[in-house]
């Protein structure tokens, strides 16, 4: 048993003849981490997640979730993974209580106390019908179902995009709560990066079917840096740096975002272009993301 909650090897998926959604990725999510999965729309995130849950058949490669192969043993995977998808349609004719009862019957581990505490936190009651719920409450119910399963791994496919800030906050708080008790892994795919900025300890970025980066947040923040340079004279026209991702210039100031940053690079730049001052800035995950895929 390895210590990865999720592990894929050369995972590939093609739709039709031409559209390659996932071009062979090696994703590794350590156990107990909070892994945030970023990517633009159409990058292949949802496809990857579906393959992890065994909802979509992969073309080639391996997917292993909690030690089980997603395609050969999807039932074992799903019984241990709490899954919340964006705009997940559930049975609107059911009441919350009925839905919980229905859902509970599938799982061996179930935490009734957590159900009650989450319901009271979200101010929901068991007799409300799903079709009468607002969008935020609907998402909360989906979250309750996923968390109360007492899962080892929680996979969330952009569940918070359409929610208002209050609901969003409560959503995140619930996730953190269950994170505390046992070693659980959270795999969170989202666009609202700043919300997970503080929570994440690992990040993965998908772009056009490829996994560009997959590493701890600290490592990423050390890897991608912004170098801010102020020049006395006119700014140089071309600034070529290894690993250059983005360049901004205004007046006598030039900022470059580079990846695979080392101190030598700074020295190299200082030598070559001789700026008056240069300083290194750490970027937020969102900035790094935009720089890498924008």
């Amino acid at each position: 048993m390895n210590d990865f909650a999720i592990s894929t090897t050369a995972l590939k998926k093609k739709y039709g003849w031409k559209k390659e959604a996932v071009k062979g990725i090696d994703l590794q999510v350590p156990k107990g981490s909070v892994y945030v999965f970023l990517g633009r729309n159409g990058a292949g995130k949802t496809t990857t997640i579906k393959m992890l849950m065994g909802l979509l058949a992969r073309d080639s490669g391996k997917t292993e979730v909690l030690g089980f192969d997603s395609e050969k043993d999807p039932v074992s995977v799903r019984s241990r993974v709490g899954f919340v998808a964006e705009n997940q349609k559930m049975y609107d004719w059911m009441t919350i209580g009925e839905l919980i009862w229905f859902n509970k019957s599938f799982y061996q581990t179930w935490d009734d106390k957590l159900v009650d505490s989450l319901l009271s936190r979200f101010k929901l009651t068991k007799d409300l019908k799903l079709k009468n719920l607002s969008r935020g409450m609907y998402a909360q119910v989906a979250l309750i179902l996923a968390l109360c399963q007492d899962p080892e791994l929680v996979i969330l496919d952009d569940p918070i995009s359409g929610l208002d800030p209050v609901v969003r906050r409560e959503f995140m708080e619930s996730i953190i709560e269950i994170l505390h008790e046992k070693e659980r892994t959270i795999f969170f795919s989202t666009h609202i990066v700043n919300e997970v900025e503080k929570l994440a300890d690992h990040v993965g970025i998908m772009h056009e079917g490829n996994l560009l980066v997959s590493m701890p947040v600290e490592e990423l923040k050390n890897n991608v840096k912004k170098i801010r340079m102020i020049f006395d004279d006119k700014i140089p026209d071309d600034i070529a740096v290894a690993g250059l991702l983005k360049k901004e210039s205004s007046g006598h100031e030039v900022s470059v975002i580079v990846k695979d940053f080392k101190k030598e690079i700074l020295k190299d730049i200082a030598d070559r272009y001789k700026p008056k001052t240069s300083e290194i800035q750490t970027l937020t995950i969102e900035d790094i993301f935009v720089a890498m895929v924008g």
């Binding site: 995977v77 349609k89 559930m90 609107d92 859902n103 599938f106």
Partner: peptide, 14 residues
């Protein structure tokens, strides 16, 4: 038609 099949399929049930 109600689009709930994906919900049902994410349950650990063959």
């Amino acid at each position: 038609s109600q689009n709930t099949k994906s919900f049902l399929l994410t349950k650990p049930c063959e």
